[in-house]
């Protein structure tokens, strides 16, 4: 399978602090790829580099054959990378369906003129977007909550709404930042099912996760970061038996 995302020699420094240090890996099309590591290993920083929130200090990020290192977030979204956030970032005072409608922004073609005068084209597009948003809400199991303010949804519903909003950008690659954090075992099972459905739609999934059971079960390949460095890469079984990974998680003396 061809690589959809190729990260080469990526480093990110904040002043003297090296958050990500010379990391390289490839995410293949149609797989679930996981990024794990202890707290502060630089996982979210890496996500921020891939989605354009940080410009890499060194190294390149290649997505679908194009170099996207340093392009701003809205460009990477348009190119086909969607993401969710570790600490949920929804538009609190917009309804669930409006959150998802907003996700369509970069795929819409209405111009300022169309919006000002409510042209038939604009009306048709809005109608299509609403239908598609409802469909996505159904997909994540929030069909009944379309009109609630995002803020008033339960925690698990908010996580799923964020996934729906990300899917609305019609991504080729979906980055999930600790999607199962704070979930009950039942919710985790549902999340894994949802990930399979997303895969079924031809979207590659790249996730950060702390729950080892989820990671081992769901992902095909794993990269392990520690102190910003890549210390291991491979299948779940390979990573589990890797001495450096065990040290990183349990400390050297263990």
């Amino acid at each position: 399978m061809p690589a959809i995302l190729r990260v080469e020699g990526l480093s990110k420094r904040f002043g003297g602090l090296v958050a990500v240090d010379n990391v390289s890996f490839e995410v293949n099309e149609g797989e679930v790829f996981a990024l794990i590591g202890p707290n502060g290993a630089g996982k979210t920083t890496l996500f921020n580099c891939v989605t354009g929130f940080y410009a890499p200090t060194f190294g390149s990020i290649n997505f679908g054959g194009r170099d996207i290192s340093g392009s701003p977030p809205h460009r990477t979204a348009k190119a086909g990378i969607a993401r969710t956030f570790q600490n949920i970032r929804l538009f609190d005072y917009m309804s669930a369906v409006d959150n998802v409608r907003l996700g369509h922004h970069c795929r819409m073609h209405s111009k300022l003129w169309d919006s000002l005068f409510k042209t038939p084209f604009e009306k048709r597009e809005e109608k299509a977007i609403i239908e598609h948003s409802m469909e996505l809400l159904e997909l994540v199991g929030l069909g009944r909550h379309a009109d609630s303010y995002a803020r008033n949804l339960a925690y698990g519903q908010q996580r799923r709404l964020e996934i729906a909003r990300a899917l609305a950008t019609s991504p080729k690659l979906l980055l999930l930042d600790e999607p199962a954090a704070g979930f009950t075992p039942q919710e985790k099972v549902e999340l894994m099912q949802l990930v399979q459905v997303i895969l079924g739609r031809g979207i590659t999934v790249f996730l950060i996760e702390h729950d080892m059971r989820v990671v081992m079960q769901a992902s095909k390949r794993i990269v392990v970061l520690d102190h910003g460095e890549k210390i291991a890469e491979g299948t779940p079984a390979e990573v589990r038996s890797n001495q450096r990974v065990i040290e990183a998680y349990l400390g050297k003396s263990a």
Partner: peptide, 11 residues
């Protein structure tokens, strides 16, 4: 509401 989330959603 949230500039970061808006940017991530392609705005």
């Amino acid at each position: 509401e949230d500039e970061t989330a808006a940017a991530a959603s392609g705005v």
